[in-house]
């Protein structure tokens, strides 16, 4: 049996009186790729951010590799070294070069050897075709390039799980493919365990082992990828898919 990376049990999340997430339950096996789909405002981003401790939660449990997560800042800080996250707005550090962006956390947080990390970073940059930009500053790069760097920055930490939060949403259409290809390659070649929030339906259909369909903070479907796109179980999901017109 595959190794369980993540398990979410009865997760509820409130903003004041308003409930953003209702009793979320799912698990994730090693090497699985899950896409998180749903209309805007359905709670996808909230959920994925909660899985990285960026949004606190009160109710429910999260297990990472079989161990229950104590939702304290210290515990999250440790876990985040194993959970990579990439954001919609790239959020490279503007004051650092591309290479320093990548080296910062592995050397300062994980205290790994700088030379060794550097070799690895260069290899990763090579892989995303940006080795020649190692000494550029983020402002000199296009959005697509920045997003590829942000992915490399997360990968350099050797994560066991990668979270992608609408990483192509603010890119120009011609930049989107390059970024998606990298994620696809991570799935096919590295068998990276991933949770992906996206609006790119073709991509989701291609990559998803499973689809979690969220609406109004409720998890309506947890369906194998192919099945979701061909025969969604709920009327809401069918409606959603037809509205996306892909």
């Amino acid at each position: 049996m595959a190794e369980e990376i993540l398990k979410v049990e009865h997760l509820n999340k409130f903003y004041g009186d308003w409930q953003a997430l209702h009793d979320i339950n799912f698990d994730l096996q090693k090497g699985e790729v899950v896409t998180l789909l749903g209309p805007s405002g359905s709670g996808k981003s909230t959920l994925i951010r909660t899985l990285n401790g960026l949004e606190p939660f009160k109710d429910g449990n999260i297990y990472f590799k079989g161990e229950k997560v104590e939702p304290t800042p210290k515990e999250w800080q440790k876990l985040r070294q194993q959970i990579g996250m990439v954001f919609q707005s790239y959020d490279l550090f503007p004051n650092l070069t591309v290479l320093d962006n990548i080296l910062l956390a592995p050397t300062k947080v994980q205290k790994r050897d700088r030379e060794e990390v550097k070799k690895e970073a260069m290899a990763l940059l090579e892989r995303v075709d940006l080795a020649d930009q190692a000494n550029s500053y983020p402002r000199q790069l296009s959005g697509g390039q920045k997003q590829r760097i942000a992915i490399v920055r997360a990968l350099a930490m050797h994560p066991e799980l990668m979270l992608f939060d609408e990483v192509t949403a603010s890119l120009d259409p011609e930049m989107v493919r390059g970024v998606l290809e990298i994620i696809k390659e991570l799935a096919d070649r590295d068998h990276m365990t991933m949770i992906i929030v996206t609006h790119e339906m073709n991509f989701a259909a291609q990559i998803a082992d499973r689809v979690l369909f969220l609406e109004d903070g409720k998890l309506l479907e947890d369906t194998p990828g192919k099945q979701f796109f061909e025969h969604p179980q709920t009327a809401r999901a069918a409606e959603f898919l037809s509205s996306m017109e892909f």
């Binding site: 210290k74 800080q77 707005s89 947080v109 930490m157």
Partner: peptide
């Protein structure tokens, strides 16, 4: 806040966040 999130997502603690994200950017 995005920059702080990015730093946190890389596993930085409060001190590292201040030292590597808040201080250099805040000073400029």
């Amino acid at each position: 806040q995005n920059q702080l999130d990015a730093g946190e997502a890389l596993g930085m603690n409060q001190f590292q966040l201040a030292r590597y994200v808040v201080l250099p950017q805040g000073l400029s």
